[in-house]
Every structure is written in C-alpha cells, then in structure tokens.
C-alpha cells in the first residue's frame, strides 16, 4: 500500500481540479462541493482533453473540449457517449489536512 502525498487541503478550490504527475500518469484531482476528493486520469477518452479544466457538477466533470460528461466516482463516460478513464482513490487526512493519492495497485474502475 502506498499513499502518495500530493498537497494540502488549502491547495484546492471548491469544484475545481489540480494536476499532479504520479507514476508516469497525469492525474486531475478534484475537490467536490461536499468536501470529498476524486482523482481521474487527466485525459479525456475522446480526444485527450484536459479534464482538470472541465466544469464540475456534483460528482461529474464536463470535458472542456467537446463537453463529454464523465463520472468522477468510477471514470465512466456518461451516455450518449461511451468510454472510461482511470480513476484512483484520493483522500485527505482530517488531522493534518494533507491530501494523498492511494495506490494499492488497484485502479478503482472495474469495467
């Protein structure tokens, strides 16, 4: 189990994302309005749009290039489009405010 420290709660803005490179992949790490975090690969399955730049609504992000809608919980592209991106678990330590990517070798997405 490896938790990778990527920053602090104060580095994040509500309904926005930050970019972090880890394991050779560029991740987009989102802070949702309920205070929880999500991380998905920062590359849209359509034409590699930077998902970190999308508009966030509840647990979804809209790709800034052609408006695909992606579920941040599992990386699934929503109908009418198809596809999925890698998702990783990300959490923050209540006591220290530090934010970590969880890497247990398992990507969250299953299908």
């Amino acid at each position: 189990m490896a938790n990778i420290l990527i920053g602090h709660l104060k580095d994040f803005t509500n309904q926005r994302a930050r970019v972090v490179h880890s394991g050779g992949i560029e991740w987009a790490v989102f802070l949702l309005s309920d205070g929880s975090f999500r991380a998905i690969e920062n590359s849209c399955p359509h034409k590699a749009g930077k998902l970190s730049e999308g508009i966030v609504c509840d647990h979804h992000v809209y790709c800034p290039l052609h408006d695909w809608k992606i579920d941040l919980n599992d990386g699934q592209v929503q109908a009418p489009d198809h596809g999925c991106v890698n998702a990783l678990e990300v959490f923050h330590d209540e006591a220290t405010g530090k934010v970590y990517l969880r890497n247990d070798g398992q990507l969250k997405r299953t299908s």
Binding site: M1, A2, N3, I4, L5, I6, G7, D11, R18, V19, V20, H21, S22, V29, D93, T96, K98, Y100, L101, R102, N103, D104, G105
Partner: peptide
C-alpha cells in the same frame, strides 16, 4: 501543477511498493 511527493507513510499503509 502539484508535485507528488514520494509515497508517504504518515497516513495509511507504509508499503513502499
């Protein structure tokens, strides 16, 4: 962009895989 530190033991498991 943020910088990913090396895996951190302070929260959760310490396995440095």
């Amino acid at each position: 962009s943020l910088t990913a530190a090396s895996p951190d033991a302070s929260a959760g498991g310490a396995d440095n895989r």
